[in-house]
């Protein structure tokens, strides 16, 4: 029955336009990232690679780097008080396209940068919101339930379907990264070895856990719009300020120095994860995911037991 339900849900996904449009948007996003950091002349940007690396290693996202690059542009095209353009007399290559800041970087580094950008989370939120929202919009569970009477089997099938789609999306990001590097970088090469596989799997698990949270919101609130909105809020880091405030409150008022909520959110774990992550950090990541999967499953089971279908 689980297999039948999963096939049915996969077929439903295959008929969703968003299932195709969102990966295309992801590919375009990755390609633009590659163009920006590998294909736009670093002399035009006016920021040193080391500075960008510093930004990168400080745990900020590609968006943060983008801000820095923008600053670089401004700096590079700054006009001095006497009206002359700064650096005008320098003989550097100022053509727009050329070797970018990360032109020489490896494919695994670019994959890391793309994952850390959290764009995939944003797009997956939309997909999961639409996927789960359709269940409530159409009342389709009225049809499915009769096939077995097991609401939990249906939940499991949906969790598997979302997992498979998330994996597919992760591979799309990976494939787009290779393409981006091939077009705008020096050469497609992997330098992290087994570390890359580890990072790929861990970042997938984190992304999947995030998708499950969106699924839970969609199921709990029976709303497509709510699921997508919450997904975007989480992926865009809107809650960061709130979590920082709670952390501050816990530390300063409750005097609990060791508790750090920001450190156990999925988006933060995804931002902090890298090829050099310590074993402790990896274990913490896996624990956070395990807690999320358990909570999401238990709440679904509880809802299935208590709530009528329609």
């Amino acid at each position: 029955m689980l297999m039948n339900f999963t096939k049915s849900e996969l077929f439903r996904v295959s008929r969703m336009k968003s299932a195709y449009v969102l990966p295309i948007i992801m590919i375009i996003t990755v390609m633009f990232t590659s163009l920006m950091y590998m294909g736009v002349n670093k002399n035009v940007i006016g920021i040193e690679e080391e500075d960008l690396d510093n930004v990168s290693s400080s745990g900020l996202t590609v968006d943060d780097m983008s801000d820095s690059v923008e600053l670089g542009f401004n700096a590079g095209s700054g006009i001095s008080e006497d009206g002359t353009v700064e650096g005008e007399d320098e003989e550097e290559d100022k053509s727009f396209f050329g070797e970018g800041l990360w032109y020489n970087r490896s494919t695994d580094f670019m994959f890391y940068a793309n994952v850390k950008g959290l764009d995939a989370l944003l797009l997956l939120s939309i997909f999961v919101g639409l996927f789960c929202g359709a269940i409530h919009n159409t009342g389709m569970d009225k049809n499915n339930l009769l096939a077995s009477g097991h609401k939990n089997t249906l939940y499991a099938a949906r969790a598997i379907t979302i997992g498979l789609y998330t994996l597919f999306f992760h591979f799309v990001t990976f494939a787009a990264t290779i393409l981006g590097v091939a077009i705008f970088g020096k050469s497609v090469r992997f330098v992290e070895g087994i570390g890359f596989v580890k990072y790929f799997v861990l970042s997938f698990i984190l992304t999947y856990a995030f998708s499950m949270v969106i699924m839970l919101v969609g199921t709990f609130l029976k709303s497509q719009a709510a699921a997508i909105t919450v997904g975007i809020i989480l992926a865009a880091g809107v809650l960061t300020v709130l979590i920082s405030f709670i952390d501050l409150f816990i530390k300063k008022v409750l005097k609990l120095e060791k508790i750090n909520l920001a450190n156990v959110t999925l988006t933060q774990r995804l931002s902090l994860l890298n090829y050099n992550s310590s074993t402790a950090s990896i274990i913490r990541t896996l624990l956070v995911c395990a807690v999320v999967f358990t909570v999401v499953t238990l709440v679904h089971v509880f809802i299935n037991r208590k709530r009528d279908l329609c």
Partner: peptide, 8 residues
């Protein structure tokens, strides 16, 4: 088809 697949 969605319903049929659910029934195998």
């Amino acid at each position: 088809k969605i319903k049929c697949l659910a029934y195998g």
